[in-house]
Nucleic acid binder design. Structure first.
Lengths: 226, 226
DNA sequence: TTATTATGGTAATAGTTTGTTAATTATTAT
DNA sequence: ATAATAATTAACAAACTATTACCATAATAA
């Protein structure tokens, strides 16, 4: 299995970290963060990221210095490093490339630009982004358009009610849906069916998906987990 | 667990998206974006937003159509939807309300106006912006949606009464709840159960959480502390 | 059409978990 | 020390869910 690409973000400003983190997570990268050089080095050793994005301006140990240190670590000699800086800090650009920066990103940057920049960088570094399909729920994929559930690559043709029930539960993994909500949402507020009907459908789903996805919360309802 | 309010923004123009996103993030909302109808639907399914702000004019699938589709999704039938459009596109206003729009916002709009509009809308929809941080209570997290208590990263599946009792006590750490209040609140004013029942439940909770969280105040009641 | 199969629902019952009580022991306050 | 209150345990009852078999109906194929 190819790894998910891991990116370490290093910046002392929390909101920039958050901005980057948010936009890169959305792309399916695994994001790690650090707020100073020391932390960054710790983290880098721990997770062996594919790419490190370093803010040049940081208190104590700046990005350049951090980069230099990281380059000395075994196993991290070839990690991709991109510097992040406010526009017009040209001097650091030069210093940055000298210590082995792979790219140089100016703040502020728009999310889309950031992302395509990252992608290009990873491509150059021969690191392929394995797109993690976030619609993959623990080996189960729900194809709403095709009204089909795919489990471990195999298509399951679930009957309508079973599909809808699964769809509802899986719409918010971890959340408990009460019987009332389930009836309302899958059967419709007016239709009157007994509570056992839900159990039976749950059982059928469990039969097909395995017992580990739908969990009973006694006295409350059911939830989907993976 | 009170969630942060999630808002999905849908517009094909990146700068509008950014404008909205920026201003709403500042208010503490969780912002998700999509640039077309299809993406919007995907995203909506994935994140179950509380509010969707949809641009009416978009290539391929317009806002009206997108709205219609979203309304058919289980779990999203009741999501708040606001349309966004250039002034004077009156026709769409009508069509918008027909497919179940909850509000209608004209572009351009000033940030402050936008924000108060959103707040009003959420208020109408009974969605409160709760900025309660889910800070764990001394290593314990109570997940009301999932009806689960997480202790040191491990999930504890508490039975209903135990969960509700813990929920009550932990709702105000440090405060003593009398037996009377506990019975009223967890068991309901009419139900008559003996006082020992509470003790037994407290004991079970202590067994699972450790003895340090629930404290007896003899002659008065119990309290949660951490 | 008719036969066949798939689906959705019910009912009965078995099985499990949860809630409550009662009895006993331990603790605390006065 | 005594009385009041709480902790603990085990047993029992109640609540709830799982499972199975069965029937009606709808969809599908011959």
């Amino acid at each position: 299995m190819s790894d998910v690409v891991k990116i370490l973000l290093v910046d002392d400003e929390a909101d920039i970290l958050e901005f980057l983190s948010y936009n890169l997570k959305k792309e399916g990268y695994d994001i790690y963060t650090a707020t100073n050089g020391k932390q960054a080095i710790e983290m880098a050793k721990k997770v062996s990221p594919h790419l490190i994005i370093l803010d040049v301006m940081m208190p104590d140990m700046d990005g350049i210095e951090t980069c230099r240190e990281i380059r000395t670590l075994p196993g991290l000699k070839d990690v991709l490093i991109a510097f992040l800086t406010a526009r017009n800090e040209d001097y650091s650009q030069i210093a940055g490339f000298e210590v082995g920066a792979d790219d140089y990103i100016n703040k502020p940057i728009k999310p889309r630009v950031l992302v395509s920049r990252i992608k290009a960088l990873l491509r150059r570094g021969n690191i392929e982004q394995v797109v993690v399909d976030k619609s993959d729920l623990g080996g189960i994929k729900i194809d709403r358009e095709g009204f089909v559930v795919v489990k471990d690559g195999k298509a399951l043709n679930l009957p309508k009610k079973e599909f809808e029930l699964l769809e509802l539960l899986a719409s918010k993994p971890g959340k408990v849906f009460t019987r009332e909500v389930i009836l309302d949402s899958v059967w419709g507020g007016d239709v009157v069916v007994g509570d056992r009907t839900i159990d039976v459908h749950v059982r059928k789903l469990r039969e097909k998906l395995g017992d580990d996805y739908i969990k009973t919360v006694k006295g409350v309802g059911y939830k989907f987990e993976f």
